[in-house]
Design a protein around this nucleic acid. Structure first.
Lengths: 320, 320
DNA sequence: AGCATGCTTGGAACCGCTTCCATGCATGGT
DNA sequence: ACCATGCATGGAAGCGGTTCCAAGCATGCT
């Protein structure tokens, strides 16, 4: 039994002869090791947990796909914790590490508080944030401030000066920070072009979603001097802006330029100009980073910044 | 230890007094049972596997969401096997039950061959199909033939007679059967209205996707006598039809009626008339059925048919 | 009052693997 | 040829639960 285990775990202290003999026996007996026993005796759960908010949203699913692709190749199982209420968010971020029933933890798009991050760090379970960062923890993602500036800069370069910003709640109970970071980039780009950053051009939707964004866009377009271009903090919300424009009979991009963010699959089909960020790849990279951290802990948090690209399609045009 | 285990597993043969005492001790010691040990000694893996094709597609994700919601409440972990190639499909359907490393198996939208079904049945692991049926296995889903007839009947009732059908491959390597079943319903409805079922009005796209459906729709609209209405086998494909119509300058619904299938979230935002089927609920129901079958095997396969509803929005109108 | 019955409860075996330890054998040096 | 060294191998002790079994106790019956 000891030798068999050594063969299975590729322990070096086995002679070639016995290794071959054991492997033949394994094959002929159609033997597969019992993972539960392995977990118990080795003390490893061979399980990785991931906390995902609203995993049905296209960008989150796409990231999750990258995670699944990498982990299916490894010996680890993935267990999904789906967050659909702020209570679940707090509960999972607080309790999951404590129960310590997995060897690694991925957290998608949720930014832990300092207290939560500390707790996570002290739990001893390696943690990687995807699409989020915290100084205490490993993280993979893009620079959303730069992304906001990239999108806004594109509109400015097209001659727009009255540029709206549509996002979901800047302070949301899930503590998503993308909307705030992109707003910050938006303001930076405006400032760089010496355009005043008028809060009346910034409209928050109460929730993420096409409908909510449409309502928010309507408010913007109702203003006495409506914007000639809108930067939506996500593609989904950009679709809402497109709808609002269509409902008002505005031609996009002739009368209104619209730019989104994320470059989800549907963006291409609706010819949406947007900021592309690696989605599936961010999940894959996060999973790889976690596996590496589990194998050999790094002494200090590793932060991976992924590149952003402007994708010009047909919803932005020079100001007339 | 014996008694503690009995308390944890709510075994009846424990007096109230000791039960309370044990629970207090558990609470004060901050004790949590080790799942690996539980799995090993009980012989149950406490794990359920699910085979999902392309889990990023909206309708599959939505179903998966229902599964996750139910299983997160149970003591079972969910492990996802994502199928993105026909090889993976065959591999998983063939090998997964044999490895018998989980207590139950869910299969989403993939219809097993007779040989596969038999193998699955004989593996001893309870299996539930979601959005698919096989006489040997439990299943949850809708009647896609009836759904095809429902959609087509709606167009016929609006006075249309030249009705196109757009779908992905009828014989696809993944053995999805929805396209075929809906086509069958389409033909039945036409026959019932004494309209000939002209194959030149039926166009298969080589793959699922907006772009492919758009190309297929273009072919249909290029015909000398183009259809006045199109039934797309999925909402995603209906979006492709809408794009093709828009590209050709056709007004929907005045000049072309379009109906989809599934009622995914985006359908509402694009005002798509469609056939609603329970998505998240099908996953939830499938998970519940599996849990029941695991607790007490049924003597014969249970097939649950879920209801379909026609959702009239703004992409269908009477023929002019 | 004594004995049988039934409900509780503690103890021990066991689930199947990993890992440590001691034994055995071959090798190399003297 | 003998002894020391080192590597390969089999055996045994856990890992932390579940479950069976036997013993203990209180109750109810004769």
């Amino acid at each position: 039994m000891g030798t068999v285990s050594r063969v299975l775990n590729q322990h070096p202290a086995v002679s070639e002869a016995t290794r071959a003999a054991v492997q033949e026996a394994i094959a002929s007996l159609n033997y597969t090791p019992n993972p539960s026993a392995r977990r118990l005796s080795s003390g490893r759960t061979l399980t990785i947990a991931i906390i995902v908010p609203f995993f049905t949203r296209p960008s989150f699913v796409e990231r999750l796909r990258g995670v699944v692709a990498v982990l299916n190749q490894s010996e680890y199982q993935l267990v999904i914790y789906n967050v659909e209420t702020p209570q679940q968010r707090d509960l999972y971020l607080h309790d999951l590490p404590r129960r310590s029933r997995f060897d690694g933890l991925l957290i998608l798009s949720l930014t832990p508080t300092d207290a939560e991050a500390e707790r996570l760090q002290q739990s001893g379970v390696p943690v990687v944030l995807i699409d989020a960062f915290h100084p205490l923890l490993h993280g993979v993602g893009v620079d959303d401030v730069a992304g906001g500036a990239l999108a806004t800069g594109h509109l400015i370069a097209l001659g727009h000066r009255d540029i709206g910003y549509i996002s979901d709640l800047i302070d949301c109970p899930y503590r998503f920070i993308a909307s705030r970071a992109r707003l910050q980039g938006y303001c930076q780009a405006l400032a760089a072009a010496q355009i005043p950053c008028d809060p009346r051009y910034q409209q928050e939707a109460t929730q993420h979603g096409v409908r909510e964004a449409r309502e928010a866009a309507r408010l913007l377009l109702d203003r006495p001097q409506p914007p000639t271009a809108v930067f939506a903090a996500s593609d989904t919300q950009a679709f809402g802006v497109l709808q609002a424009a269509r409902a008002r009979g505005l031609d996009v991009p002739a009368q209104l330029s619209v730019i989104g963010y994320d470059d989800i699959e549907m963006a291409e089909f609706w010819h949406l100009t947007t900021v592309h960020q690696p989605l599936s790849e961010s999940g894959a990279e996060g999973a790889r980073l976690l596996l590496a951290a589990m194998a050999a802990p790094f002494d200090s948090p590793r932060q991976i910044r992924q590149p952003l690209t402007l994708i010009q399609r047909q919803t932005t045009a020079p100001r007339v």
